[in-house]
């Protein structure tokens, strides 16, 4: 029975996240437009775009290799598996024992590698530039992320995401400076990993400032649809991750019934909506920074995460 429940939760979670991902992107765009005084497209627009892209025949460059055709699937698969591991409305999913935070970082790295390979496949200047920049940023983002994981691991005793979420929900940890610092660091990493302002502008097509978009210049049709869908999934993943770790309230505990799921669903919707609002507000308020300011931004996040761990060593009386 427990197994059946966990399978059901897993499937529902997957369906929910797959359906919600383009909506999250659409919602952020709509909110941003509203804040800037425009009417903005409906939050459903990304879904319509995806379906339209699927109908179009993809055009590949003459010297494109098999990489261009396989990488979209690889990138999508890695992101989809990663997103299946992050709990949304309920804990105790079927894949919870597999859902390790370090593995999550590995899967995101796999997706990033697939995207960078596709960007370099045809040998265009912009694709190479975007790939080099994306990989360079990750050299600062990954350590910051892992130091955040260290903070969680100290408090929860494990890097399993489900267990971390449960500990942060049940164990009265209180408001901790370390967790606050880790939250700031994690948000900075999330902004960088998703290519949002101020690190990258998801709406730009100005060649010299592109990072993420530069790698997609040659993609079209279903390939572009897959890349866009994967990007939407990644944003959803990061928001859900922040929600699962720092805002664990409301989620249905492992082995609970449909009523608790419904409450969890509502709580998740509220949390995700709030995070989207925060993201939109932040993006409207700040300007994009120069590419070579990004290491400082991420380096600051890294140091904050290190600080969080250091303060934790002291406050838990470990030292």
């Amino acid at each position: 029975m427990l197994i059946l429940g966990s399978i059901l939760v897993q499937l529902l979670h997957l369906a929910l996240v797959l359906a919600a991902a383009p909506l999250v992107i659409g919602l952020v765009r709509w909110l941003k437009a509203r804040m800037m005084g425009r009417r903005g497209a409906s939050p459903l627009q990304p879904w319509r775009d995806l379906l339209k892209l699927l109908r179009k025949r993809p055009v590949l460059a003459e010297n494109a290799s098999v990489i261009s055709e396989v990488a979209p699937f690889a990138g999508f698969a890695a992101t989809a598996v990663a997103v299946a591991l992050v709990p949304s409305f309920a804990r105790g999913m079927l894949l919870a024992p597999v859902g390790d935070l370090v593995l999550l970082a590995g899967l995101l790295a796999l997706a990033r590698m697939a995207l960078a390979l596709a960007g370099m496949d045809v040998g265009t200047a912009f694709g190479g530039m975007g790939a080099a920049r994306e990989m360079s940023f990750s050299a600062f983002a990954e350590p910051a992320l892992l130091l955040c994981v260290l903070t969680f691991a100290i408090l929860a005793g494990t890097t399993n995401l489900d267990a971390v979420s449960a500990t942060f929900h049940d164990g009265a940890l209180g408001l901790r400076v370390s967790l606050g610092l880790a939250a700031v660091a994690m948000l900075a990493v999330a902004v960088a990993e998703n290519g949002r302002i101020p690190v990258d502008n998801p709406a730009t097509h100005l060649e010299l400032t592109m990072v993420h978009e530069a790698m997609l210049l040659e993609a079209s049709g279903r390939h572009l649809a897959l890349w866009d869908y994967a990007a939407a999934l990644r944003l959803t993943l990061w928001l859900a991750l922040v929600a699962a770790v720092f805002l664990p309230f409301g989620a249905a505990p492992a082995g609970s019934g449909p009523l608790a799921w419904l409450v969890g669903l509502l709580a998740w919707a509220v949390k995700m909506g709030g995070l989207c609002l925060m993201l939109a507000g932040f993006e409207s308020a700040v300007a994009k920074m120069r590419v070579f300011r990004v290491p400082e931004f991420l380096g600051a996040a890294l140091l904050l995460a290190l600080l969080a761990a250091a303060l934790l060593f002291v406050s838990t009386g470990l030292a």
Binding site: G174, E296, L307
Partner: peptide, 27 residues
């Protein structure tokens, strides 16, 4: 930890430390 008076005071202190780093970080 877990006691509200302490937690809030602690968080405010942490916020000040964070802002000290912001002071160093801004250009």
């Amino acid at each position: 930890f877990g006691q509200l008076p302490y937690d809030v005071a602690h968080l405010l202190g942490g916020g000040m430390l964070l802002l000290s780093f912001m002071l160093l970080y801004q250009r």
